[in-house]
């Protein structure tokens, strides 16, 4: 499998007046063609900022990619001009946002909004555009597609709006779909429908997907490989079975153990003490050291490099002795 997207050593800084924070430090991962890569982490760990960087959507005035590269389909996204980015966005890479309620424009009909990417990227006649829109709406399971295109977003339910968002992302048949918490705002029964749908579309079209979520259940359900993020860096990367069977990083272990379904009923749940440090509180050592039950002197003074055990990578000092991990780049 070839790599569709490579993120190498990415660092992002935000400026706020005179203060500078660095929410993303040394992030590395790849998305291969045809796979679903999950990115999991708690709020504020930088998963959404990373996805915005891949789309070239970071606010230009207050943020900056200070180091690293984002290579999509052998093109450097971080070096592109706004014009070049516009050719890619919605065309080769497209994105589904978390809030289906706010990401559609309330004053345009569904049809008008779906027309936009086709006008921008494809040379089709008006009739062809309409045909294509109806075809895609049917593909995502919207009944009465012919009528829906003349309706406004407020006339649709949350699940339907999310389907419209998905069809908007699919219109130009992108190579990479970024889904940022696509089901977080939805109820469980609707979530099950949408996940089924996304799985079916990925299988049918050989698209790649980057699925960003905080829900380990969604990860277990959907992904082939998983990247775990904590406080702005990647702490672990593995295939989904490997991650659930044999998590290496103490943070991942803690996350999995703290799920209610992993604990005996009514007993005290396992929990990770403390809170995620803010980006300006991070010191020299491992970002997780202050909450880690295995932390040693070394964890507080030096940030751990990536160790790999077979295909499984994790950033933790514990791995060099206990599991026989190999120091890798």
């Amino acid at each position: 499998m070839t790599n569709l997207l490579e993120v190498n050593n990415l660092n992002i800084c935000f400026r706020n007046g005179k203060s500078i924070t660095q929410p993303i430090r040394n992030v590395n991962f790849t998305v291969r063609s045809g796979e679903i890569l999950g990115i999991v982490g708690e709020s504020g760990c930088g998963k959404s900022v990373t996805s915005l960087a891949v789309m070239g959507l970071l606010p230009p005035k207050s943020s900056e990619i200070t180091k690293g590269e984002i290579i999509f389909n052998e093109q450097h996204i971080e070096k592109m001009s706004e014009k070049q980015l516009q050719n890619i966005r919605g065309n080769e890479v497209s994105m589904i946002f978390q809030e289906p309620m706010t990401s559609l424009n309330p004053v345009f009909t569904i049809g008008q909004q779906l027309m936009e990417p086709l006008k921008q990227h494809k040379s089709l006649t008006k009739v062809q555009r309409k045909e294509r829109i109806i075809e895609v709406l049917k593909q995502v399971g919207i009944p009465r597609a012919e009528q829906i295109i003349d309706e406004y977003p407020h006339q649709l339910s949350g699940g339907m709006r999310q389907r419209v968002m998905i069809s908007l992302a699919l219109l130009c048949e992108p190579k990479l779909l970024i889904a940022d918490e696509p089901t977080t705002a939805l109820d469980v029964t609707i979530q099950a429908q949408i996940l089924e749908l996304l799985k079916r579309i990925i299988a049918e079209t050989n698209m790649s997907m980057m699925l960003i979520t905080h829900d380990l259940g969604v990860i277990a359900e959907m992904c082939h490989r998983v990247v775990v993020m904590y406080a702005g860096s990647v702490v672990e990367e593995a295939s989904v079975e490997e991650l659930f069977d044999n998590p290496l990083h103490p943070y991942t272990k803690g996350l999995l153990k703290s799920l209610p379904s992993q604990n005996e009923r009514k007993s005290a749940l396992y929990s990770i003490a403390g809170q995620v440090p803010r980006p300006n509180e991070l010191g020299q050592g491992c970002a997780f050291a202050n909450r880690c039950e295995f932390a040693t002197e070394r964890c507080l003074t030096a940030a751990p490099p990536v160790f790999s055990v077979a295909q499984h990578k994790a950033k933790c000092w514990l791995l060099d002795e206990t599991v026989g991990g190999v120091f890798s780049e």
Partner: peptide
């Protein structure tokens, strides 16, 4: 039954027979 079956699985190897409800509330 449908509500319980819609809960995401807790391990990738877990197989669950899912009852996917049609439509919305």
């Amino acid at each position: 039954q449908a509500l319980l079956s819609a809960v995401p699985i807790s391990h990738p190897k877990e197989k669950r027979e899912r009852i996917v409800l049609e439509g919305d509330v």
